Simulated scan of single mutants.
Amino acid sequence: MLKPTVRRLVLHRRGSTVWDVDTERGHYAVKLGYPIAATAEWEAQDWTALAPAREGAVLLDVRTEGVSYGTWEHGTWNIQPWHEGASLYEQWQPHRTGEATEEPDLRDALACAQTLSDLHSKGWTHGDVQPAHFILGAHGAALIDLALAHGGAIPEPYTFPYRGCLVHYEAPEISRSVLATGQALPTPQADTYALGASLFISATGWRAVAYPDDASRAEQRQAVVDGPHRPVNVPGTLGKLIEQMLSPQPHDRPTPAEVCTVLRAELDSY
């Protein structure tokens, strides 16, 4: 379909591969999904085969141009525009290593909050917010990997239950539900928590909630439920916002739009 002039494998993990593809028509990301076979370390998973098509359906619903999706012999695929730039985690590396003398750039935080707010305004919750999914480029931030998003209609062949995300960024109510029932319902408030946890770990290198590196998923989730989160040692307005976003009570968290308002006011005061 694309007739690539250049292609590069950028990710190969359990259940998916992602390619960076240049063509005469433009620059694309190509995702292929396939089932995960059972091993001694993990159970078999079928949802990974469906995830690219599910993401394609979400991207079309939010009116992203240049998107298509379909099936192949092992699962599903999608094609979407490539976003040039660095992830939030990469962008803020100097703050974690001590190389940066200034505070984290509030413009980066604003760009991340804005793209999440834009998604919410279209009726969708991301469900998998993490630093690697914010791509900071010349024109702001892009929020990628929408395979777990909820809010609009998904074609029946590509639906599957939401069983949580990377626990580092999981809100307490999501972890509690997954522990109790095996699944949860992502919400805008949980996305806000994940935004706060993403900003915190990108600035400091620390997970918002402490648990051993070798803890099981269940142990990680129980630590998130039990709390509290680590002290937020990020200075200034950003630290205050992160503290609010990490509130254990969903209704106490600001919306991404409210986060944007505070950050814009702070930037305008400079």
Score class of each variant (00 low, 15 high):
Lys3Ser: 14
Arg14Gly: 09
Gly15His: 06
Val18Arg: 11
Val21Cys: 06
Gly26Val: 03
Leu32Phe: 03
Ile36Lys: 10
Trp42Ile: 10
Asp46Tyr: 09
Asp46Gly: 15
Ala49Lys: 00
Ala51Lys: 14
Ala51Asn: 05
Ala51Glu: 12
Ala53Asn: 06
Leu59Phe: 04
Leu60Met: 12
Asp61Phe: 00
Arg63Gly: 00
Val67Pro: 01
Thr71Val: 12
Thr76Phe: 01
Gln80Ile: 00
Pro81Gly: 01
Pro81His: 01
Gln93Ile: 10
Gln93Phe: 07
Gln93Lys: 15
Arg96Glu: 07
Glu102Ala: 13
Ala109Phe: 04
Ala113Phe: 06
Thr115Ser: 07
Ser117Ile: 05
Ser121Met: 08
Ser121Gln: 15
Gly123Leu: 12
Thr125Ala: 14
Gly127Trp: 12
Asp128Phe: 11
Ala132Glu: 14
Ile135Phe: 01
Ala141Ser: 14
Leu143His: 02
Leu146Ile: 06
Leu146Gln: 07
Ala147Ile: 01
Ala149Phe: 08
Gly151Ala: 09
Thr159Ser: 13
Phe160Lys: 06
Tyr162Ser: 10
Cys165Tyr: 13
Val167Glu: 09
His168Asn: 11
Leu179Asn: 13
Gln183Gly: 12
Gln189Asp: 14
Thr192Arg: 02
Tyr193Glu: 01
Ala197Met: 02
Thr204Gln: 13
Trp206Asp: 13
Ala210His: 08
Pro212Asp: 14
Pro212Asn: 08
Ala215Ile: 05
Ser216Ala: 02
Glu219Arg: 11
Glu219Asp: 12
Gln222Phe: 01
Ala223Gln: 03
Val224Cys: 02
Val224Ser: 01
Gly227Lys: 09
Gly227Ser: 08
His229Val: 08
Val232Leu: 07
Asn233Trp: 12
Lys240Val: 11
Ile242Ala: 03
Leu246Pro: 00
Pro250Phe: 06
Pro250Gly: 05
Pro256Leu: 10
Glu258Asn: 11
Glu258His: 14
Cys260Lys: 09
Thr261Ile: 10
Val262Gln: 11
Leu263Asp: 02
Arg264His: 08
